[in-house]
Amino acid sequence: MKLFETTTEMGHEQVLFYQDQKVDLRAIIALHDTSPGKAMGATRLWPYVCEEDALRDVLRLSRGMTYKAACANIPVGGGKGVIIANPQNKTDEMLKAYGRFVESLNGLFITGQDVNLSPKDVRTIQSETNYVVGVYEKSGGPAPLTARGVLLGIKAAVEFCWQKQRLDGLKVAVQGLGNVGQSLCKYLHQEGVELFVSDLNPNKTEIAKILYGAKVVEPSEIYSLDVDIFAP
């Protein structure tokens, strides 16, 4: 990847790299567009195979946040943060160091919870910066609201395609049972759908099976199921 050419083509204002070897932190924050207001975007922690994958991810996600804010008519710009780490190696010291990284931008970037970060982790980050949303004692994690948005999107698609107001009786495949996926399964179960789920973590599929009566399939099989709706 040609860094400067790519960021120019995608319209980014700044891409910032941060490393703290004492706590094994490697992180990137991308600011796509701050003309509408401060850049806002959650932070995800992921064991990227290489640094280029992390950079590609943070660039596309930060640009996506600009578009999301514009579509929702919210006066903020698009940003995103990624921490390059194995979730099993996550520590409070690492998260606090990341909080100091966010704080160093003096409010230009506001972050929150994404993949492999919990509301508790966000609170740890907040101990070093004021520029965090989704703190556990206040608004809580965003997963239930994100899942609610997915549910409303599914309902709109069903009404458009089949002129149906209800989801009961439909077959829905949910790929990935993280915080959003589990919440989505809960909502879909309440709507009376027949659930099919897959995840690399068998503990998560077992939870969906017990709580929501979901049928568990192998990750490689989820794409070829005969279902009405696929929610990746």
Rank of each mutant, 00 (worst) to 15 (best):
T6N: 06
T8D: 15
H12Q: 06
V15L: 13
F17A: 02
F17W: 08
L25Y: 00
L25G: 08
A30K: 03
H32P: 01
D33P: 01
A39G: 05
T43G: 04
C50H: 15
E51C: 00
L55F: 07
L55M: 13
R56N: 10
R60D: 09
A69T: 00
N73L: 10
V76M: 06
V76G: 01
G77N: 05
G77M: 01
I83K: 05
A85F: 12
N86W: 08
N89V: 07
N89E: 14
K90C: 05
D92K: 09
E93K: 13
K96A: 07
K96V: 12
Y98T: 04
S104R: 11
L105I: 09
G107A: 09
L108W: 01
I110M: 03
G112I: 02
K120Q: 12
V122H: 06
N130C: 00
N130R: 09
V132F: 08
V135Q: 15
Y136D: 13
G140Q: 04
L151C: 05
K155R: 14
A156R: 02
E159V: 00
E159Q: 11
K164G: 09
R166I: 15
L170D: 05
K171H: 13
Q175N: 14
N179Q: 12
K186G: 10
Y187E: 09
Y187W: 10
L195W: 01
L195M: 09
V197N: 10
V197A: 08
P202K: 11
E206H: 08
A208C: 15
A208N: 08
K209D: 11
Y212F: 15
A214F: 13
E218M: 10
I222G: 01
D226Q: 15
D226S: 13
F230I: 12
F230G: 02
P232F: 00
